[in-house]
């Protein structure tokens, strides 16, 4: 629906300027009325308040207009946050599974994980998203679920591949003496991992995991491309109904993402200071 709206406004603008230049007043006037009623009906359908460009051009940046935009945009907040939480959760789990598989004894498991990581790290997230959304259902006749699930899975798998390297690197960075000490205490492989290595490795992972979580938050905006109504989607809708307000709209959208990121920035800082305490060996 957003697409139709955008197109019609484009036509509307072109015709408007033509009218002014070529003095073909009557034709333009009629066209103007026609488009106006078309836009009104569309806007009713979409429940979007349309502010006509001819009137809003006068007051470009206006705090009160910006504040008026916020309720519109917050309608996308639920989707953005739910996609963020779910895809971050999947990314963490995938990161641990893949990270641990990469250091496992089994060559097959290591190779398989290696292929997964390279494929998902080496290709674009948007293309992966479109693959899951358009290509997979066509090729294999599998429905992966709603577009919410497809977005969550694509982002989760993509960031999981990056974060698996963090998991692997942190585990390998634990001092060798720690493993020797746990062998000397006769711990099993599993106990060594659970009691000694992971608690220290996880402390090292915290800063990187924080950074990746912020990146995931920003990546959630891509789900607007597969029809999810998140913050960016509503921003686009507003822009397409009101082209001249685009700068202000996107400033407000950016600010909303920035505010969403703040808790993670804070948590990462906090995590870093915790991480410093428990690791330094010797």
């Amino acid at each position: 629906m957003g697409y139709v709206l955008k197109k019609s406004i484009d036509i509307f603008n072109v015709k408007l300027s033509k009218r002014e230049n070529s003095h073909s007043g009557l034709y333009g006037q009629r066209k103007y009325k026609l488009l106006k009623s078309l836009l009104q009906s569309i806007s009713r359908y979409n429940q979007v308040t349309i502010v006509y460009s001819s009137t809003s051009r006068k007051g470009m940046v206006n705090i009160s207009t910006a504040i008026e935009m916020i309720p519109q945009l917050t309608r996308g907040l639920a989707v953005t946050i739910s996609v963020l939480i779910a895809s971050a959760f999947i990314a963490y789990i995938v990161a641990f599974i893949a990270g641990l598989s990469k250091i496992s004894k089994s060559i097959l498991l290591r190779k398989f994980t290696g292929v997964y990581v390279e494929v998902f790290r080496g290709t674009s997230l948007i293309v992966q998203l479109f693959w899951l959304y358009y290509a997979i259902p066509m090729l294999f006749n599998i429905q992966l679920g709603s577009n919410w699930w497809i977005g969550v899975i694509a982002i989760g798998l993509n960031y999981g591949s990056y974060m698996s390297e963090v998991v692997r690197g942190s585990i390998l960075a634990v001092d060798k003496g720690q493993i020797e000490a746990s062998i000397a205490l006769n711990m099993t492989r599993y106990q060594r991992m659970r009691l000694v290595i992971l608690p220290q490795a996880i402390r090292m992972m915290i800063p990187d995991f924080g950074n990746y979580t912020i990146q995931i938050m920003k990546a959630t905006s891509l789900v607007s491309l597969i029809g999810m109504r998140d913050i960016l989607y509503y921003g686009d809708i507003m822009r397409s109904s009101n082209l001249s307000q685009a700068p202000l709209i996107y400033v407000v959208v950016l600010l909303m993402y920035f505010i969403l990121a703040l808790p993670f920035v804070w948590l990462t800082r906090k995590g870093e200071s915790i991480a410093k305490k428990g690791v330094a060996s010797q």
Binding site: D175, G177, Q178, E180, A181, I183, A184, L185, N186, T188, V196, P199, Q200, R203, G278, V279, A280, S281, Q282
Partner: peptide, 20 residues
């Protein structure tokens, strides 16, 4: 190995205490 290793304990040059 683990059965026999239970008889043995070791102290290291660099202590290797668990820092956490």
């Amino acid at each position: 190995i683990s059965e026999l290793r239970g008889n043995i304990g070791m102290v290291f040059q660099h202590f290797n205490l668990f820092p956490h």
